[in-house]
């Protein structure tokens, strides 16, 4: 038999531990909604559960009156909050230097302008052009560009693994690699002007995608052979859906390195490639 006093002390200790944990609510956004069937006494519970795994859509959520339950509503708002924060948030100032990127900015001056004036997000500021001329690498074989685009979170979540894997691959193939660039307030086509200033033989831009509620961290890569301002959209190659739930960033980096190798070998990108 255990000493009852010890048992009491142990129980008290456990209770305190529990209370400590209870003070922080569980992370709403971590719940797998495909596992969460909220319909009470459904006609066929097990088939309902099966069905929920066949779609990422928010089903099996039930209702109070005609309105969603509180936790469903809050989860939706949490996912939207993350998406909006990702659009409106900024890539930290120190990000570029921490990853060895040369920072420049387009003609856009603030986030609101970025969202309403896509044309300005394609043009480099005067200062940016000077920075590139002074600090960029002219006439390299592969120029890597990172741009915030519509998701600051996509940059933070993917670049730390993708960029070194990409650079490692390019180095392994023996290419002359330009100093990588970070573009603030960039749209895809800002690569065209960079191409005209630095004349790289090929260029890849890694840019945040418009967030959905499912993920706010998705990144796209657009690739071009000898980018220039009159190039057509169809002359760019693209790989999208790079994030932890899609194409993992590390594998994407290695894959992009081999795609750049193919683009250089065939001297073309996009539909011509």
């Amino acid at each position: 038999m255990q000493n009852p006093y010890e048992t009491v002390a142990l129980l008290k200790e456990r209770k305190e531990e529990r209370e400590k944990i209870d003070q922080v609510l569980p992370d709403l956004a971590k719940i797998n909604i495909q596992e969460q069937l909220l319909v009470p006494q459904p006609a066929d519970e097990s088939l309902y559960r099966e069905m929920m795994h066949l779609t990422p859509a928010r089903i099996g959520v039930w209702r109070t009156g005609t309105r969603p339950l509180t936790r469903t509503m809050l989860r939706f708002r949490a996912d939207h909050a993350l998406a909006q924060d990702s659009v409106l948030g900024m890539v930290p100032e120190e990000f570029a230097s921490a990853h060895g990127l040369l920072p420049i900015q387009t003609q856009v001056e603030n986030k609101e302008q970025y969202l309403t004036r896509p044309d300005l997000g394609r043009k480099l500021s005067l200062e940016a052009r000077e920075t590139l001329t002074k600090g960029g690498t002219a006439a390299c074989q592969v120029q890597v560009v990172v741009a915030d685009g519509l998701s600051s979170k996509a940059i933070g979540a993917n670049i730390p693994d993708l960029l070194p894997a990409l650079m490692q691959g390019l180095a392994h193939y023996g290419f002359i690699i330009g100093r990588p660039i970070f573009v603030k307030y960039g749209r895809v086509a800002c690569m065209d002007e960079i191409g005209e200033i630095l004349h790289p033989e090929s260029l890849v831009i890694l840019i945040g995608e418009r967030p959905g509620l499912g993920t706010a961290e998705s990144l796209s890569a657009y690739m071009a052979y000898k980018p220039h301002r009159s190039m057509l959209e169809s002359e760019r190659s693209v790989i999208s859906n790079i994030h932890r739930g899609g194409i993992p960033p590390l594998e994407a980096g290695a894959h992009l390195a081999s795609l750049m190798k193919q683009i250089l070998a065939s001297k073309a990108s996009g539909v011509r490639y």
């Binding site: 859509a57 209702r63 009156g65 309105r67 969603p68 996912d79 959905g212």
Partner: peptide
Amino acid sequence: PMGDDVMLNYQCTSFHDVASLRE
């Protein structure tokens, strides 16, 4: 479902909203 389009990545009115507006 819950106004979240998992393919087009945008949000619109939900099953619940239609039922609520009718009511």
